[in-house]
């Protein structure tokens, strides 16, 4: 029910109704982008990655935050490997 899927805004189709064409995994659909305008001119949204839910872009995906989370995940993996190596070191 609360599922959302990332897509990229490729064109504005109806500025008055705040509708845009959004590419979701290669499929284009008209989506309402009123929630992600954030007081910008509507054309400024082209290129944005957004989370699409029931025909509406509900959030702008923050590339910096995505990179931060991935970095944390990688560091967590490296730390865990280090820890395992430490624990196993010298064992038969």
């Amino acid at each position: 029910m609360c599922l959302g899927i990332p897509g990229q805004i490729v064109a504005i189709t109806d500025a008055q109704r705040k509708l845009a064409s959004v590419d979701v995994g290669g499929v284009k659909r008209e989506i309402n982008i009123a929630c992600v305008l954030a007081e910008r001119p509507i054309e400024a949204c082209i290129g944005d990655w957004v989370l699409v839910h029931v025909g509406f872009a509900m959030s702008r995906i923050n590339a910096e935050e995505a990179a931060k989370t991935l970095k944390l995940l990688i560091e967590l993996g490296e730390a865990q490997q280090e820890f395992m190596a430490m624990r196993q070191s010298g064992r038969a």
């Binding site: 029910m1 609360c2 009123a34 929630c35 839910h53 025909g55 509406f56 509900m58």
Partner: peptide, 10 residues
Amino acid sequence: FETTMPATAF
């Protein structure tokens, strides 16, 4: 829930 509410409100 609140995820879907804005879509119906708009």
